[in-house]
Nucleic acid binder design. Structure first.
Lengths: 346, 346
DNA sequence: ATGAAAGCGCTAACAC
DNA sequence: GTGTTAGCGCTTTCAT
């Protein structure tokens, strides 16, 4: 504490070599005789020397840290944090993937905001999850020339060559998957409940749903509820659906907590799930698995999305060719009791 | 992109002042005439100048980033991530609190490991959640003189003056709270299910439970299952409890997923919750709320713990007096159906 | 194979 | 109130 930490100079002196040599033995640049290397290593060890990452960062103009902008953190009210499972799995997997790339993962809220922590800008690149229409952050990063990738497309962004690189969340395919599944499990009056954030997931799902409804020749019925309302939002959505027109016999709710809240109301109203109403959530969560009945969902596989995002960003940072993830689809349908066709009575 | 970003020098030249003046106008040090400040600000604006955080960091020997070591990330298998709710809420709240202190929050795995990302060490300080007995990370940080705070005490650490500063998780009080609640709801053969990590939560709960059992004159019955086994761990624990001696009529399971798994097995065995067995989980989660029946729990209030940890660390970093959190207790019992006394029949 | 020296962008004495 | 200048700890030509 009292004695300052050793620098490259101390090691050089102690090993009787120049700082260049020390630098080289650690970075692997240049050439250093094995014997010398050994001496340097020993000296460093003895002194407890660790290269100063900040100094390296200044020199290399690269800190080894990437930032994750979680829109769920944009608010000052962490109690509003929604989609906890998705966030946790994404952040966790992103951190692990980053470490595998030798990078640190910083959690930041929107750095375009007035309260932007300076540190946020120290990162080498950004991962932006679920950017929204004409996202100001995307605009800022683009104009500042800061490398970034998004998870999900940026709605409204020009699809020109300059379109920001992103990890495909396959919202179109997954929406169809969920809707077809509801159809096949017998539903014919299928409603959609979306969140209100203007991100790809909400917007594309709605668009696909409209097309799908036309194709199936059913009357579309949609409700939009803010994500952060959680169960309460789901309850309201269900109430709205029940109040307006014939009760749906299938619901696709994009947010897990909305699905949960909806089931509550339906059950309270004496409707049986899945016999009277089938339901599928558009995002998986523990609570869906534990619910009664367990609720089917689209597992977006945030772990995989995070891994891809980190890989993609890391590749861009290194100027490496970007990995092609298009081979393997991501996201899958998890069928649980809430949408399972009634088991044949033995 | 092609043109390098402007430095303090460029701004100085463009504003017709010295670099010192520019530095001062931005840091607030020294004194700069308002008029000059204005000129500098304008010039900076025009050039799109942002102080380089890394250079500042090098100079000040402080980056403005703190690291959160989440033990759940120590593994390379993010799918093993357990206690997702706790992690997400903690990380989210920590990130928000950090931002409020003008700090960034970095997620890192154990930096003592061989694969330590260099960047991890760039942080100004560390938050270590749930350190384990004789934690090597705690030892490393201590000997390296790196500021840190832990959430929960470090078991086995000397309680000497040098004992690492920590946020009190009140494990003793909360364990008693849970056990007394089970007792009051009618349970008399109360078993404890803990995880196997050697952290304060597991160790102190076990110790308190033993004392409490003696005091209540009941025969202690404990099972330890690894946290990452999740539901399966809970199932095993319940099976073990049922196989050995008289079936418990009350279970306190420290991990939420263990509680969930246990309820599954109990129900399968024809036992009714809470009528035959009352159950309380030692960590809250969405899935407990959505479970059937909803499961009571100790809400550790990770949001609050995170906030306190960040505040404590930030204060230490600035040499400010550390906030005294002892005033307000943290953690509370959330009573749900799994341990509610049967409602009086109308 | 090794070393001297010039910075990376910024801050903080210390002059004026 | 403003400017000069010496570094922070490291990497990297370019000599030797």
């Amino acid at each position: 504490m009292t004695t300052r930490r050793p620098t490259i100079r101390d090691v050089a002196r102690s090993a009787g070599v120049s700082v260049t040599t020390v630098s080289h033995t650690f970075t692997g640049n240049g050439t250093v005789a094995p014997a010398t290397q050994q001496r340097v290593r020993t000296a460093a060890q003895d002194l407890g020397y660790r290269p100063d990452v900040i100094a390296q960062g200044l020199r290399r103009n690269r800190l080894g840290v990437i930032a994750l902008v979680a829109r769920q953190l944009d608010t000052l009210h962490p109690e509003l944090l929604y989609d906890v499972d998705y966030f946790a799995r994404f952040a966790g997997a992103a951190a692990v993937a980053s470490l595998a790339e030798g990078l640190g993962l910083m959690l930041v809220s929107d750095p375009t905001g007035p309260r932007a922590a300076g540190a946020a800008l120290a990162s080498d690149g950004f991962i932006v999850t679920e950017p929204v229409t004409d996202d100001p952050l995307v605009a800022m990063l683009t104009s500042a020339g800061i490398p970034f990738v998004t998870v999900g497309e940026t709605p409204g962004a020009p699809l020109a060559p300059g379109s920001p690189p992103h990890v495909d969340i396959e919202s179109g395919r997954l929406t169809t998957l969920a809707l077809d599944h509801l159809w096949e499990s017998g539903a014919r009056r299928i409603a959609l409940v979306t969140g209100t954030d203007r991100n790809e997931w909400n917007l594309r799902s709605a668009a696909v749903y409209r097309r799908w409804a036309r194709y199936r020749r059913i009357t579309p019925s949609m409700v939009h509820v803010p994500e952060h309302l959680d169960d309460e939002g789901g309850r309201r959505a269900a109430a709205t659906l029940l109040a307006s027109g014939p009760a749906p016999d299938g619901i696709y709710a994009l947010t897990s907590n909305h699905a949960l809240g909806a089931v509550e109301v339906l059950t309270d109203q004496g409707l049986r799930v899945p016999d009277d109403v089938r339901i599928v959530a558009g995002s998986d969560a523990e609570s869906l698995r534990a619910a009664h009945p367990p609720i089917s969902s689209i597992d977006l596989q945030p772990d995989e999305l995070a891994r891809r995002a980190v890989e993609l960003l890391a590749a861009r940072l290194d100027g490496r060719p970007v990995p092609d993830h298009a081979q393997h689809r991501v996201g899958r349908l998890v069928v649980r009791a809430s949408s399972a066709p009634p088991a044949p009575q033995p």
